[in-house]
Computed example of a mutant assay.
Amino acid sequence: MARYRGPQTKIARKFGEPIFGPDKAFEHKNYPPGMHGNNRRRRKVSEYGTQLKEKQKVKYTYGVLEKQFRNLFKKAASHKGVTGTVLLQLLESRLDNVVFRLGIAPTRAAARQLVGHKHIVVNNKVVNIPSYSVRPGDVIGVREKSKSLEVVTDSLSSQRHNKYPWIEWDGEAKTGKFLNVPEREEIPENIKEQLIVELYSK
């Protein structure tokens, strides 16, 4: 399966929430896509269907492919702690997600592109792997010659980097510090991770 590059609003409408961020088109039509829209009678979704839908929502939200997601789940299951919470913590620790949370990029897709094009440094070393796992104490920043990129300057002006307690932002240096792995209650995504654990436990 290739990474999804189609209309994001269509996917957001499928899940009934703006999983890719603020979306005016979604606000205008926040019901499922299709010619019958909100009037179509929908069959009751099975337990498996509900669990699968939650997994798909998480994959789209974080931009992770099926094989990557399965490997992350196996890693989470082998860690101490609640598997579902550990899974979300591993997703939040991905470099592309941290770049997004810091406000360096407006979306996770844009963050993944910045990382892939070698605009991001971790502890002063260029890292171009979006799935790179950031550790507490790591300093993430914009490469010196990339600090004037329009996508970076526009995104940083949003001040989104001040929203999360597990990261610290230095506006002058344009660097952020990953202070600690976030607790479950600190992760703002509307995800029922227990459904995913139940799905993989079958």
Rank of each mutant, 00 (worst) to 15 (best):
residue 140 I to G: 03
residue 60 Y to T: 08
residue 3 R to A: 08
residue 20 F to T: 00
residue 91 L to T: 01
residue 6 G to D: 13
residue 193 E to A: 02
residue 134 V to E: 04
residue 85 T to M: 11
residue 192 K to G: 05
residue 191 I to S: 01
residue 184 R to W: 12
residue 122 V to P: 00
residue 74 K to H: 04
residue 131 S to G: 08
residue 18 P to E: 11
residue 39 N to S: 11
residue 5 R to W: 01
residue 162 N to A: 11
residue 196 I to C: 07
residue 55 K to R: 04
residue 197 V to M: 10
residue 179 L to I: 07
residue 4 Y to P: 01
residue 55 K to S: 05
residue 76 A to E: 04
residue 176 G to P: 03
residue 139 V to D: 05
residue 33 P to D: 12
residue 195 L to P: 00
residue 201 S to I: 07
residue 117 H to Y: 15
residue 6 G to F: 12
residue 200 Y to P: 13
residue 114 L to N: 00
residue 70 R to N: 14
residue 140 I to V: 09
residue 59 K to I: 08
residue 82 V to H: 03
residue 10 K to C: 06
residue 160 R to N: 13
residue 149 L to W: 03
residue 18 P to F: 07
residue 172 E to K: 10
residue 133 S to A: 09
residue 163 K to F: 07
residue 53 K to C: 01
residue 148 S to R: 04
residue 165 P to D: 10
residue 20 F to D: 11
residue 68 Q to G: 06
residue 124 N to E: 15
residue 89 Q to F: 09
residue 22 P to A: 14
residue 38 N to D: 15
residue 90 L to P: 04
residue 94 R to V: 07
residue 140 I to H: 01
residue 73 F to D: 09
residue 41 R to L: 13
residue 200 Y to Q: 14
residue 142 V to K: 00
residue 119 H to L: 11
residue 51 Q to N: 03
residue 177 K to V: 10
residue 174 K to M: 15
residue 171 G to L: 06
residue 19 I to M: 03
residue 191 I to E: 05
residue 112 R to D: 05
residue 67 K to G: 04
residue 91 L to P: 00
residue 167 I to K: 03
residue 51 Q to P: 05
residue 132 Y to V: 12
residue 51 Q to R: 06
residue 135 R to Q: 13
residue 12 A to R: 02
residue 53 K to A: 13
residue 164 Y to P: 00
residue 158 S to Y: 07
residue 174 K to P: 04
residue 125 K to N: 15
residue 193 E to Y: 02
residue 122 V to F: 03
residue 66 E to P: 06
residue 143 R to L: 14
residue 103 G to E: 05
residue 4 Y to V: 14
residue 60 Y to Q: 04
residue 175 T to K: 10
residue 36 H to M: 14
residue 131 S to R: 01
residue 144 E to D: 12
residue 120 I to M: 12
residue 126 V to W: 12
residue 19 I to Y: 00
residue 13 R to H: 07
residue 1 M to D: 14
residue 49 G to N: 12
residue 101 R to N: 02
residue 99 V to S: 06
residue 70 R to L: 15
residue 89 Q to Y: 08
residue 21 G to Y: 05
residue 193 E to T: 08
residue 18 P to T: 11
residue 23 D to C: 07
residue 50 T to A: 11
residue 155 S to R: 04
residue 94 R to W: 11
residue 185 E to P: 03
residue 126 V to D: 08
residue 181 V to D: 09
residue 145 K to I: 10
residue 84 G to D: 05
residue 156 L to C: 02
residue 41 R to S: 13
residue 40 R to D: 09
residue 76 A to C: 12
residue 76 A to H: 09
residue 37 G to N: 15
residue 196 I to P: 03
residue 102 L to N: 00
residue 87 L to V: 06
residue 41 R to E: 15
residue 9 T to Y: 04
residue 14 K to W: 09
residue 94 R to N: 10
residue 108 R to H: 07
residue 146 S to D: 14
residue 91 L to R: 01
residue 77 A to M: 12
residue 182 P to G: 07
residue 51 Q to C: 07
residue 94 R to H: 13
residue 124 N to Y: 15
residue 154 D to K: 08
residue 43 R to T: 11
residue 153 T to I: 13
residue 105 A to L: 09
residue 59 K to R: 14
residue 65 L to S: 05
residue 181 V to W: 08
residue 156 L to E: 01
residue 7 P to F: 14
residue 79 H to W: 04
residue 70 R to M: 15
residue 61 T to W: 04
residue 49 G to L: 14
residue 17 E to Q: 03
residue 133 S to T: 06
